[in-house]
């Protein structure tokens, strides 16, 4: 049993690398938004209301005056559709949040999701842990994207510093935690990786995440040992 203070600390420790990875991109986002004529107040509004990094970066790239409202909204929906898969997986693990689940959903990011799923392997996700991670990300995302509207010009080529690699590095390290042996996890990883790479190379947009994830899930279902029917026959409840 962990205390709220311990969960708070664990949340801060867990979220620190993802904050360090996200801040440079929030700064660039702010700088790009300024270049497109968006004001700091509009940047703050977007980071608070949308709060989804990659869709915000793409949106700023697409922005023109007047704003193409329908195109921006549709793009945000397609790019963020991966959250639906993440939410489906996380849902049961935070069922004890009660109504706070709908607030948790608003704060759901790739980072908060991945850190929470990693946490859930070892112990239940407490409200304190989740909201420490999610609100810390929220706070730094707002602050850095608004600061970027002022100072972003000093950070124009993040890839020269390797900063664009921070996000995949975090995900690679977290993905290792889900390894349950070559037999169970191997087919999932191979199917997901192969399909994601192929779809990324051939289909424009963000469909590759959805396609890869579905391929990985399908591989898991196909290769899963067939135990369930026998248990059902014996009338046992498995969980």
């Amino acid at each position: 049993m962990t205390t709220p203070l311990a969960d708070f600390r664990a949340g801060l420790v867990a979220v620190f690398p993802t904050v360090a990875a996200a801040v440079p991109f929030a700064l660039i986002l702010g700088q790009q938004a300024t270049a497109k004529g968006l004001t700091p107040a509009e940047m703050l509004a977007m980071s608070s209301i949308v709060f989804a990094g990659s869709s915000q970066l793409i949106a700023v790239g697409l922005w023109s005056t007047p704003a193409p409202v329908a195109a921006l909204a549709l793009m945000a929906f397609l790019v963020n559709l991966r959250h639906t898969l993440m939410g489906a997986s996380l849902s049961g693990k935070i069922a004890h949040f009660g109504r706070l689940r709908w607030v948790a959903a608003f704060l759901l990011t790739d980072e908060a999701w991945a850190l929470s799923e990693r946490r859930a392997i070892d112990q239940p996700i407490s409200r304190t842990f989740y909201f420490t991670v999610a609100l810390t990300m929220f706070f730094f995302w707002q602050t850095a994207s608004v600061l970027g509207t002022v100072f972003g010009t000093y950070l124009e080529h993040p890839e020269a510093w390797g900063l664009d690699f921070a996000f995949p590095a975090i995900f690679i390290a977290l993905a290792l935690g889900f390894w349950k042996g070559a037999r169970r996890t191997g087919p999932v990883l191979v199917a997901s990786a192969v399909v994601a790479v192929i779809v990324h190379a051939t289909v424009p947009g963000a469909w590759y995440v959805i396609a890869g994830a579905i391929a990985g899930i399908a591989a898991a279902v196909i290769t899963a040992p067939r135990e369930q029917p026998a248990e059902a026959l014996a009338g046992e409840t498995t969980r």
Binding site: L85, F178, V188, V209, A220
Partner: peptide
């Protein structure tokens, strides 16, 4: 909460992570 759906949901986290990073 059981059967193939359970297997699918259990496989979801690594599947999404790998789909994001592989490309």
């Amino acid at each position: 909460k059981s059967g193939p759906v359970r297997v699918a949901l259990d496989a979801l986290p690594p599947a999404v992570l790998v789909a994001v990073i592989a490309p």
